[in-house]
């Protein structure tokens, strides 16, 4: 049991990482990785939403009518997202960050990780493992987000969390800031991940 629980938590972070292995949740992720701060808030929001929605859907799993299951799941996820959005907007220190994430907070709803975990795990498992599975997948996702944001902010602006870290003589690379580079960077991260873990390579 303990072994299984450990696997539930560790698997999504390494071997079954939602972004680099399952290729889920790319949509809302890449555009918020220009700065580390935004990526961190996005990661935390997604962790909260995946965990809580998995928990709620798991609690409801025996009552949900099969035919409207997608709609019910989406309503639960949307509710969680709106809650996160409203809370960020109301906090004095988080208000500015919420403004920066604008439309992407809403897109957590359609973040495939959330729906994917509900379908694949929460509907067939007890609430506590579902909560952990949701949290772990959110973390696996957040981790990649933060790695990408770290590299993009460092190379694209010479800063980390808005503080200058590279010497002033470094000329920021504008290409790194533009959307396409996030994809190339992600491709390289996948490359590194699979070079390290040969089992994941595709034929």
């Amino acid at each position: 049991m303990a072994q299984k629980l450990k696997e539930t938590i560790l698997n999504p972070i390494l071997k079954g990482n939602p972004i680099t292995v399952l290729v889920l949740g790319i949509c809302s992720s890449l555009a918020v990785t220009v700065q580390l701060k935004g990526a961190l808030v996005m990661a935390l929001s997604v962790i909260a939403v995946t965990g809580l929605s998995s928990l709620v859907c798991s609690l409801l799993r025996n009552t949900i009518p099969m035919r409207v299951r997608i709609i019910v799941q989406l309503v639960v996820v949307a509710m969680m997202v709106i809650l996160v959005d409203q809370i960020l907007k109301a906090g004095e220190s988080t208000y500015a960050i919420d403004k920066q994430l604008s439309v992407y907070i809403g897109l957590i709803i359609t973040n495939c990780i959330v729906m994917g975990r509900i379908e694949a795990f929460a509907l067939g498992n007890k609430p506590i493992p579902s909560l952990l599975d949701g949290l772990a997948n959110g973390t696996g996702y957040g981790l990649i987000l933060i790695v990408v944001a770290f590299l993009r902010e460092l190379l694209g602006s010479g800063t980390l969390f808005g503080l200058q870290v590279l010497p002033a003589s470094y000329i920021p690379n504008n290409l790194v800031i533009l959307p396409p580079f996030a994809l190339i960077l992600l491709g390289c991260i996948i490359w590194a991940h699979r070079a390290f873990d040969k089992e994941l390579q595709e034929k």
Binding site: T20, L178, P179, P180, I184, G187, Q201, E202
Partner: peptide, 19 residues
């Protein structure tokens, strides 16, 4: 290269198309 096959190269391709 084997680790880049499939998803990896697809990402990089999309990046170049985006540019």
């Amino acid at each position: 290269p084997a680790p880049l096959r499939g998803t990896g190269i697809a990402f990089i391709t999309v990046g170049l198309m985006g540019m």
